[in-house]
Amino acid sequence: MPDLEIRQVSKRYGDKVALDGVSFEVRAGELFGFVGSNGAGKTTTMRIALGVLAADSGEVRFGGSPITHETRTRFGYMPEERGLYPKMKVFDQLVYLAELHGLSANAAHKSAETWISRLGLAPRRLDEVQKLSLGNQQRVQLAAALVHDPAVLVLDEPFSGLDPIAVDVMSAVLREKAATGVPVLFSSHQLDLVERLCDRIGIIRGGRLVACGSVEELTAGACAQLIVSVPEARPGWAKELPGVQVVSEEPARTVLELAPEVDDQLVLAAATATGPVREFRRLRPSLAELFRNVVAGEPK
């Protein structure tokens, strides 16, 4: 499968800059998490990728070529605001949408049945969408994005309103699609889920992409934290170490924050000099902590 590329995309609404030269790629077979505060530009970026909005400048490419109408028929899109016909039955709706994407009637019926079963919607297949719970409507919306076997998936807040079981089902589906080589781009405010699922993450702030990479890459330059347990240590043993800040100190357990240039082996040597070390481990910043640090300067 080809890659999806967002290249220097900008969008303005009057004096409001919605996107300012946003660039990133979603590689074939990759789960890419797109995160940012409300109004940061996530949905605008996705709508431009789908052709729902036109960019003022920049372009979207798939497989190295500019996106065309024909290309976009191969995209699967799940909007944050549900784009379903409320009075249409679940099965009929999925068949209709599959046929709009070019599937034959037989293929559309088969695919609709497959995704209804896969997403646990069989008991509701003949219900009107408006009569479903919000969680089941979300499942139908995902089925609508998948029913034509898309070459790209773009999902805006797909986990919103789902219970834990539905989250597991949707997570498994996204992993399966990525495993077939499909680029999967999705936004979410559930950062623990993004961290667990995604190969790479892009953080957008005020219409600009301010960080992009794996969690490991994005936290590589961050201040590291260490947990050090030295039961016989004297109080304050780490306070004089250069480049080291004591985050908390309890009997036999100290949490330290190290500047990027500090060698943790020097800290270990200092700890050992005070007594036997029972625990010495590095804490990796979570995506939530990284996100808070990155967006801290976001304009209000």
Rank of each mutant, 00 (worst) to 15 (best):
V140I: 13
T219A: 07
I204V: 15
I203H: 12
G29W: 02
P123S: 10
V35K: 09
G161Q: 09
T272N: 03
P164V: 10
A222V: 01
A273Y: 00
A211M: 03
I165P: 04
R7Y: 02
E216V: 14
A224S: 12
D156N: 04
L103H: 11
S133I: 08
D168W: 01
S111P: 00
V182C: 13
G297S: 11
S10T: 14
S111K: 02
I203Y: 07
L283Y: 02
G51F: 02
H148I: 09
L132V: 07
L153W: 11
V182K: 02
E176N: 04
T43F: 08
L283S: 05
T68G: 09
G236K: 06
G58V: 08
K131N: 15
F159V: 12
L290A: 04
Y77P: 01
A259L: 11
F32S: 03
G29H: 02
E5V: 12
E257K: 10
Q190R: 14
F91V: 14
K11N: 10
Y85L: 15
G21W: 07
E279P: 00
V228G: 00
A269I: 04
T73V: 13
E81N: 12
R61M: 12
P260K: 09
P251H: 04
T180Q: 13
P164E: 04
G14Q: 05
A252H: 15
G297M: 05
T272I: 06
H148Y: 04
T254I: 02
I203D: 13
V9M: 01
E99D: 08
R125Q: 14
L134F: 08
P242A: 04
G135T: 10
V147Q: 12
V22T: 09
K177Y: 15
D127R: 07
D156C: 06
L191S: 04
L134A: 08
R175L: 08
A178D: 10
G29L: 07
D127C: 06
V262I: 00
A233K: 03
Q190W: 03
I165Y: 12
T219S: 06
Y77L: 05
H189A: 05
R234M: 06
E250Y: 04
R7V: 15
T254N: 00
R27H: 12
R196L: 01
Q130A: 13
P260L: 08
